[in-house]
Design a protein around this nucleic acid. Structure first.
Length: 563
RNA sequence: UGGGGCGUCGCCAAGCGGUAAGGCACGGGUCUUUGGAACCCGCACACGGUGGUUCGAAUCCACCCGCCCCAGCCA
């Protein structure tokens, strides 16, 4: 499988790789890695990185590793590593036998640290966190050297070994690189390499009480794995000098090249792990896999397809300019994918009872219905028709405005695959609410064609009342009602109060009774739906709306409204 | 007043000195037993700005402006 369709755009990272191959750098090899920290669920932003890293490996017949960056046990959990593996697999990528953890390298990382100490490139510093910050200087003022910077090698070695041995309390001291406290790049002002931290690690348990920092562990992990191109996001750009410094000091097997690209931002959502975690912990959503979440788990549950997400990632491109992609592009990719393969079915979400008064009581006809006009091989199915049917409430208006072509008193519409009906009466309850429509059908219009060839402007979906099965349907809208909630002072105040609409009394055509999660349908004229993998079960069906169909009438109505 | 990046259509994004791709969105139309899909047409004399180099610049140079990131013992 390739993520790159023929003619797919190239980008600056491919340009770099092409140049590298031209001069036979790395023997022409391409080896990347996707390095998530297991401290949250993967989201659509990670999908961009996954598609990039695994996609490059596929395009250049190289390899891509999955490596967990698990150097901070206080934030990391196995639940997250499991969900991450699940999501990467679901997206369609395979790390084969190359599943790694930075924690696999703790011993090697430790030995390299001693190597740095022996070469006078690292020292144990007893400054407190506050002092370290103060000594670091500011963005515009250089830092000052730590009073511990000149410690002899033997003392550093002894202290570092005692740190590992657990002889010192958490936070008592750290191991620091000895570089340049006056550097304009703050990352080069003697960055911390190791801290003392007594936390149980999800893989190494309590065997370590010192843990390496990301900046130190990452380049070495890349080198150990033979990675050629270490792709990360823009905010690490000024960490690159340190990445290179580490590799230059150590007898590592190779020196990977770090390349930075702009992370994905998308309208109407947040893609920061901190904010997503907050949404989950404070119960603003029902969990990491809430269908409104931009997590891969949530999108999967909602009915997004991996194919659509990969297509989206191909289309957004890879560059260095910060950007916010329109959610509409993702929706477009979904519709395009689902349109080709989702079987059409009829489901009435907000039922309006229609009695066809000239249709014989007790009679049932079974019509052939095409499963997918986009796919002739999809075949047909039988659907039952009878005297009482449900149509969508919004398909009838007692006083239709201009350009509303659907049913109204005295008007005709076609019931898809069945008959042309005409509205002859409206039944209301005490409160004046419409509860039922009286109609007649054109007896000569079996299948939907008018005997005299008169044009019927609108065809609607419907369900036979006697045969319909009940279902709950959940409609989703953007979780946030503003385009850039991440930039708001309080993103929680931007939560869309109607991001979820639950409809309890929907009527589905009978064939849907056995619909399994993971199977996508187009509910005709409404959108794409799939059974909720968590809550749907025989006898209590629950469908999620993945994405609506485009709605020309809604657009027209809105335009008329604003006039 | 430090360091590192980035600025091409409403949103993405090609372009790598030879006279502005493509997608989404948007607008108009054809067709239609989904107001879906499909198809057709339109949509930057202009590339943050100003100078300069050149026969020729979005592409090279200079200066200016704007935006993003960095002062975790997070990643």
């Amino acid at each position: 499988m390739s993520t790159q369709v023929p003619g797919a755009p190239t980008h600056f990272i491919k340009d770099i790789i092409n140049e590298d191959r031209k001069v036979n750098k790395n023997g022409g090899r391409v080896h990347t890695r996707f390095p998530p920290e297991p401290n949250g669920y993967l989201h659509i932003g990670h999908a961009k990185s996954i598609c990039l890293n695994f996609g490059l490996a596929i395009d250049y017949a190289g390899k891509c590793n999955l490596r967990f960056d698990d150097t901070n046990p206080s934030k990391e959990e196995v639940e997250y590593v499991d969900s991450i593996m699940d999501s990467v697999r679901w997206l369609g990528f395979d790390w084969e036998d190359r599943l790694y953890y930075a924690s696999d390298y703790f011993e090697q990382l430790y030995e390299y640290a001693e190597h740095l100490i022996r070469n006078g490139k690292a020292y144990v510093c007893h400054l407190t966190p506050d002092e370290i910050r103060e000594y670091r200087g500011t963005l515009t003022a250089p830092g000052r050297e730590s009073p511990y910077r000149g410690r002899p090698v033997d003392e550093n070695l002894d202290l570092f070994r005692r740190m590992r041995a657990g002889e010192l309390p958490d936070g008592r001291c750290v191991l620091r690189a000895k570089i340049d406290m006056a550097s304009g790049n703050i990352n080069m002002r003697d960055p911390v390499l190791y801290r003392i931290l007594r936390a149980t690690h999800h893989r190494t348990g309590d065997s370590w009480c010192i843990y390496p920092m990301y900046d130190y562990a990452h380049p070495i992990s890349d080198a150990i794995e033979g990675v050629t191109h270490s792709i990360c996001t823009l905010e690490f750009e000024d960490h690159r000098p340190f990445y290179d410094w580490v590799l230059d000091q150590l007898p590592v097997p190779c020196h990977p090249q770090q390349i930075e690209f702009a992370r994905l931002n998308m309208t109407y959502t947040v893609l920061s792990k901190r904010k997503l975690l907050q949404l989950v912990q404070e119960n603003h959503v029902a969990g990491w896999d809430d269908p409104r979440m931009p997590t891969l788990a949530g999108m999967r549950r909602r009915g997004f397809t991996p194919e659509a997400i990969r297509d989206f990632c191909d289309r957004i491109g890879v560059a260095k300019a910060n950007s916010t992609v329109d959610f509409a592009l993702l929706a477009h990719c979904l519709r395009e994918d689902l349109n080709k393969r989702a079987p059409r079915v009829m489901a009435v979400l907000r039922p309006l009872r229609v009695v066809i008064e000239n249709y014989p009581e007790g009679q049932v006809e079974w019509f052939d219905a095409e499963n997918n006009p986009e796919d002739p091989t999809a075949g047909t199915r039988k659907i039952p028709f009878s005297r009482v049917v449900y149509i969508e409430q919004e398909d009838f208006l007692e006083n239709p405005p201009k350009k509303f072509y659907r049913l109204a008193p005295g008007r005709e519409i076609r019931l898809k695959h069945a008959y042309i009906i005409k509205c002859t009466g409206v039944v209301k309850d005490d409160k004046g609410e419409i509860v039922e429509l009286q109609c007649t059908y054109d007896t000569g219009s079996r299948g939907g064609e008018a005997p005299d060839g008169r044009p019927i402007k609108v065809t609607t979906h419907w369900v036979s009342a006697e045969h319909a099965i009940g279902s709950e349907v959940r409609l989703y809208d953007h979780l946030f009602h503003v385009e850039n909630p991440g930039e708001a002072a309080d993103f929680l105040s931007c939560i869309n109060p109607s991001s979820l609409t639950v409809l309890k009394d929907c009527k589905l055509e009978p064939g849907l009774a056995s619909a399994a999660p993971g199977v996508f349908f187009q509910f005709m004229r409404q959108g794409y739906f799939t059974a909720d993998p968590v809550d749907s079960m025989p006898g209590h069906l629950v469908f999620n709306r993945t994405v609506s169909l485009k709605d020309e009438w809604a657009r027209v109505a809105k335009r008329m409204d604003s006039k």
